[in-house]
Design a binder for these strands. Structure first.
Length: 532
DNA sequence: AGAGCGGTTGGAGCA
DNA sequence: GTGCTCCAACCGCTC
């Protein structure tokens, strides 16, 4: 048993959980005093686009975390301000000797953590980090893939499989683990360090929707276990066969919990392995396990691709001459494109903070290459704001996928804003739920109400063009035009600078492998030749 | 080294 | 409900 001689801050950022939290376990190991800290970074308040529903999710998550820490005789300290300066202040105040946190691969976090590292160095505080947000050290996957970001799921899977299964998830720390360790709590703790209320966060209450997916580790684990009990459902799960427009979610909705780290992806991974054991089950990429790997795929590419959330300067992103159109963009955001399925999904997004993956496909295709020809970055920003599960790597990656800017290239496959939703909801109940104005339209016309005869519109109590908008574009026409524009953009990128992307990726990989050389020394230098 | 293969989730029409 | 073809032909990866 190690001696309790350290005064430790465990810095919660993502990883807002006690289970499978190796950095927290590391903090508990030899601490005489342990301070769990969450820093409310003003960067996120001003730069990151956080809508009301996600603020609520975060507040609930922090509240749950504080309650769980209290069961261990600890408390959460929420501080506001720049992490670098706030942590420095706290380290001095509490005479901290050690800082622990979970690795975050997002560029903002990497830069931030580097600055914090320098500050800690100057203070003589030792820093211990652990990888537990992703299944693997994503840089190891890149290295196995020849130092390049994998651009297909298959090449990702091949590389990842060579690492074997991810490590087992750790248990939460127990009261026994913390014997001899304390957190000094002042009388003014709640006032000084309490979990912020929505008022504190400046959340506009009228923007809040129904609380369908409450935040927190407790809720995350319950939700996971609820789904794991449905063994047949788990084993036969195929993502493309789930419904984008059912009134209740047809998938697990674990994504918000994985985004904040209320749930460990490794725990979910191994729970799935256990359910699958000895049974016939679906396979990646369509299986539930496949979904966990998709998350890892995007985290991997995003970690080593510069400007991953932009088109310009992004070596994996096709350069496409998108056009600005505020009228179209606002109509899309506000759910008044005149295409009921698209609008209903956008209204659900704004209200509830979660929409089905395939619904995201339909509205993303519509905004970009399908209909409105607006940059995927605009859609990315809106999703970033409104989705509870808005996850930087996945959001950017999926927007590039849907706009056929990266990963997916069959741009001639276009989702129909009319036909796609009909397949799984022929009666249009989803539309009726989110757009009451259309409630009385017969099923035959509810996906394209402008085609209903005027008398029928009168009977339904909804005149198209007055009570509900006419379609802002004619899908059949713009679809054709946009496919041609895509073909032209693809041809241009092929002829003008066919090797630009590859060169950028190579530059990048040599940079990152140089940087990581001490770590990688045991595996020898990268070899160019595959076969000898 | 360039042809062939496969790619989570398109739509329409037809058997 | 399922599965084929056509539409026109993309890309990255493999051998």
């Amino acid at each position: 048993m190690s001696q309790r001689c350290q005064r430790v801050i465990h810095w919660f950022r993502k990883g807002l959980r006690l289970h499978d939290n190796p950095a927290l376990i590391e903090a508990c190991k030899d601490a005489s005093e342990l301070y769990p800290v969450f820093v409310l970074d003003p960067w996120f308040v001003t730069n990151a686009n956080v809508g009301a529903n996600r603020w609520r999710f975060l507040a609930q998550t922090l509240d749950d975390l504080d309650k769980k820490l209290q069961l261990l005789n600890l408390r959460l300290f929420v501080v506001r301000g720049n992490p670098e300066t706030e942590l420095e202040k706290l380290c001095k105040k509490w005479k901290i000797t050690k800082l622990t946190y979970e690795v975050d691969t997002e560029p903002y976090a990497v830069a931030r953590d580097e600055r914090v590292g320098v500050t800690m160095d100057n203070l003589g505080v030792s820093v211990t980090t652990s990888i537990s947000h992703t299944l693997y050290d994503v840089h190891r996957i890149v290295k196995i893939n020849g130092g390049k970001a994998p651009l297909t799921y298959q090449s990702f899977q091949t590389a990842a499989s060579r690492l074997g299964p991810p490590e087992q998830a750790l248990s939460s720390p127990t009261v026994q683990d913390l014997q001899g360790c304390r957190t000094p709590i002042s009388d003014t703790h709640n006032k000084e360090f309490g979990v912020p209320t929505l008022e504190d966060l400046g959340v506009c209450m009228t923007d809040l929707g129904p609380n369908l997916y409450p935040g927190g580790e407790t809720e995350a684990l319950e939700r996971m276990e609820r789904h794991l009990k449905k063994v047949n459902w788990i084993c036969s799960f195929e993502k493309p066969k789930t419904e984008p427009n059912s009134l209740l979610p047809s998938t697990t909705v674990l994504s918000p919990y994985l985004k904040f780290g209320c749930l460990s992806s490794r725990l979910f991974y191994h729970k799935l392995v256990n359910v699958y054991k000895g049974k016939k089950h679906s396979q990646p990429p369509v299986s539930l396990m496949g979904q966990v790997l998709w998350r890892e795929f995007y985290y991997t590419v995003a970690a080593v691709t510069p400007n991953f959330d932009k088109m310009k300067g992004n070596p994996v992103c096709k350069q496409i001459p998108w056009q600005e159109n505020m009228d179209y963009l606002n109509a899309w955001k506000e759910g008044r494109t005149g295409y009921p399925f698209i609008d209903a999904v956008m209204i659900q997004l704004r209200r509830e903070g979660w929409i089905h993956h395939l619904a995201r496909h339909a509205v993303a295709c519509f905004l970009t290459r399908g209909d409105l020809w607006i940059s995927w970055e605009e859609g990315q920003k809106e999703f970033e704001k409104l989705l509870l599960d808005a996850d930087w790597s996945l959001n950017a990656g999926n927007w590039m996928w849907l706009s056929a800017s990266a990963f997916f290239h069959q741009y001639f496959r276009v989702y129909s804003p009319v036909a796609f939703g009909k397949k799984t909801d022929p009666n249009g109940d989803f539309i009726r739920n989110y757009i009451p104005a259309l409630k009385k339209f017969p099923a035959k016309y509810i996906f394209e109400p402008w085609k209903a005869p005027t008398t029928m519109q009168q009977t339904a109590g909804c005149i198209i063009g007055k009570d509900y908008p006419k379609p802002i574009v004619d899908h059949d026409i713009v679809r054709q035009q946009n496919i041609q524009k895509m073909a032209a953009a693809y041809a241009k990128s092929k002829s003008s600078n066919p090797d630009t992307n590859k060169d950028n990726i190579k530059d990048l990989s040599s940079k990152s492998s140089k940087k990581r050389q001490p770590d990688d020394a045991d595996n020898g230098p990268l070899k160019k030749k595959k076969k000898s």
